[in-house]
């Protein structure tokens, strides 16, 4: 019997359960039928070709890319401040402040979304891509902190002290010593927050106003059964893109931990 025995069998079964929907996706994306059901009826690439003919989709894609890029940069910047502060300094109210910042990780997203909607309409801020970015930064920052804390945590404090002793200022120490060491963590955070923002639905649904993002567009298309195969094709591309982004992020996360000499505890969270 292999090591782990039944646990291994169980875990493999569990992985099949986890991957079932993703594995079905390409089947229907290449299936030559409008109805998303079995049995399959021959291969086709026409659903992918149709993706080029949907101006509404292109607009949603453009919006999503703008939102995801801005959210990733802003959330990672805020994440750098918070994770540096929480791993390097002790200060009064730390647990409370960090608790508030990490709250969106567990709070039901719909509550955050309606709360932001109420405030934005209250102060007269028109709903647009910008308001979605504000919401996505809120959701992405805790994930960025979770990734970056691991990177900052494994920093050796004596490196920093050595730099001070050699006459560097706090700012030049940060730029010359700390930043290069945590860079892989930062790249990992950018990629993960980009992926989260690209896939986020609820915030965009409430805060985008008349604009569409990809997930909002996708949900809209589910109402028209004849458009669903095209969405399956789009989904296949998105899943491949997400996996590529996540694999790159994982590569950088591990390299960062190796670089600072930390021990890999595994996982993003």
């Amino acid at each position: 019997m292999m090591k782990g025995g039944w646990f291994r069998v169980y875990t493999l079964g569990y992985l099949i359960f986890l991957y079932a929907p993703i594995l079905l996706l390409p089947l229907f994306a290449f299936n030559d039928a409008t109805v998303i059901a079995f049995p399959l009826s021959g291969a086709t690439t026409k659903w992918f070709e149709k993706l080029w003919l949907e101006p509404e989709l292109h607009r949603a894609l453009k919006n999503s890319l703008i939102i995801a890029s801005c959210s990733a940069v802003l959330a990672t910047t805020l994440g750098i401040f918070a994770s540096r502060a929480s791993t390097r300094y002790s200060f009064p109210g730390k647990a409370g402040i960090m608790g508030m910042i990490m709250l969106p990780l567990v709070l039901p997203e719909i509550i955050l979304a309606v709360a932001l909607l109420a405030v934005m309409l209250g102060i007269g801020l028109p709903l647009s891509i910008f308001t979605v970015i504000l919401g996505h930064v809120l959701v992405c920052t805790p994930f960025s902190i979770a990734i970056l804390s691991a990177a900052f945590q494994s920093l050796d404090k004596s490196l920093e002290e050595a730099a001070y002793d050699l006459g560097e200022t706090p700012i030049s120490t940060f730029r010359l010593i700390i930043l290069p060491l945590v860079m892989p963590g930062i790249i990992s955070s950018l990629l993960i927050t980009f992926t989260i923002s690209l896939d986020e639905f609820i915030m965009a649904f409430f805060l985008a106003g008349n604009e569409n993002t990809l997930p909002v567009y996708i949900l809209g298309q589910f109402r028209f059964p004849q458009n669903v195969p095209v969405i399956m094709a789009l989904g296949t591309i998105l899943v491949c893109l997400s996996i590529a982004l996540l694999a790159t992020a994982e590569y950088f996360r591990r390299r960062g931990i190796a670089k600072t000499g930390g021990k890999d505890t595994g996982g993003f969270l």
Partner: peptide
């Protein structure tokens, strides 16, 4: 403590205003 608070203030401010 002052350094720590200064460092966390941008993120804390964002969370206060938008959360």
């Amino acid at each position: 403590a002052a350094n720590g608070l200064a460092m966390i203030s941008p993120t804390a401010l964002y969370a206060t205003l938008l959360l």
